[in-house]
């Protein structure tokens, strides 16, 4: 505790101890006991994470080359090479629509809630009467589970009984079948998903904006920049790390999307998503483990594209530091 009382040295002042460089931690020689403690502190969580996340993920990759109904021991597995992948690409009618829907889903989430969330965050990032009230209202949906969101929006989208058609006045004449019409239901569901996601993004940006030094903005204002210029030239660059977090969160959300369509119609008829196809094949009554795993690996490869881009980003940050 004594450490806390002694004032930390402001960054930038010369360090008394003979250390090589700032930023890079000096290679302190740790006592053996400390080494052991540190090893345990890192080792146990890493082991849990590896065994429960990475080992099964590798297992899925292996299983994707098999044909197996999930019953019996591992000796019952028949290995079929790339057959599952070939079949999925060439003769699985739901596959390409699902890929397309996943990409639309991602694109929508990356664009709409991000822009809306950023706008709301900028609007709310000031001394504002009722500011906190607005904030609370706007991020309220994000604490709801996607399953719940799916249910609530069904009450809105029902053709004859739903809120939307009644408000539009089309309920009695020619009700729009928001969730049943495969040409529009994906977008209807995206609105619901975006509804929940926007609050989250707003929150992340709000947190980021709070960290922008007000002096910077003042300086810009003194230089005669208008609000928009200030935003794009001063604020936005500072938000860059937040943008990365937003992107990651959005990609996770976009690729994991599952509960909401599953609740609405089991992900059929225009709402196919890769996650749904995987689930249908591996945990339903009918298990086609090899087939489902191959689909999962395809989903994994798509995620991996983003994961690598992201890690690259983190890496660079690390090197700059």
């Amino acid at each position: 505790m004594t450490a806390l009382q002694s004032p930390p040295k402001p960054a930038g002042t010369t360090d008394p101890s003979p250390s090589p460089r700032r930023g890079r931690r000096r290679a302190t020689a740790l006592a053996p006991r400390d080494k052991l403690v540190l090893g345990l502190m890192l080792g146990i969580p890493s082991l849990v994470h590896l065994v429960l996340v990475w080992v099964p993920a590798m297992g899925s990759i292996a299983l994707s080359f098999s044909s197996w109904d999930g019953i019996g021991g591992f000796e019952d597995i028949e290995w079929v090479g790339f057959q599952n992948y070939v079949d999925i690409f060439t003769r699985y009618p739901r596959f390409w629509p699902a890929v397309q829907h996943n990409l639309i889903w991602l694109l929508f989430l990356i664009v709409v809630p991000t822009v809306a969330g950023l706008l709301l965050a900028v609007l709310l990032d000031r001394q504002l009467r009722f500011g906190r009230l607005y904030q609370s209202a706007l991020y309220l949906p994000m604490v709801l589970s996607l399953a719940l969101v799916g249910f609530i929006w069904q009450l809105i989208y029902q053709p004859e009984q739903g809120l939307l058609n009644n408000v539009l006045g089309t309920a009695s004449t020619d009700p729009v079948n928001w969730l049943g019409d495969p040409d529009i239901n994906l977008y209807a569901v995206l609105v619901a998903a975006g509804w929940r996601h926007t609050g989250y993004i707003m929150l992340l940006y709000l947190a980021g904006l709070k960290a922008v030094d007000p002096a910077l903005k003042e300086a810009a204002a003194l230089d005669g920049a208008n609000a928009r210029q200030t935003f794009f030239q001063v604020t936005f660059p500072v938000l860059k790390p937040v943008n990365v977090v937003v992107l990651v969160v959005t990609v996770i959300e976009g690729l994991r999307a599952f509960d909401i369509v599953y609740v609405i119609n089991k992900g059929r008829n225009g709402l196919e998503l890769l996650s749904v196809l995987v689930t249908d094949n591996i945990i339903g009554e009918s298990s086609r483990i090899g087939w489902g795993s191959a689909l999962a690996v395809i989903l994994l490869l798509i995620s991996l594209g983003f994961i690598i881009t992201y890690l690259f980003q983190v890496f660079r940050e690390e090197e700059r530091a």
């Binding site: 994470h49 990475w54 996770i252 599952f258 995987v278 489902g292 994994l300 995620s303 994961i307 890690l311």
Partner: peptide, 19 residues
């Protein structure tokens, strides 16, 4: 290690579930 954890967090649940 950091990369392992960060990437693990991005994996879709469905990739893990069967094994």
């Amino acid at each position: 290690l950091l990369m392992l954890f960060t990437a693990g967090n991005l994996l879709p649940q469905q990739v893990i579930v069967t094994p």
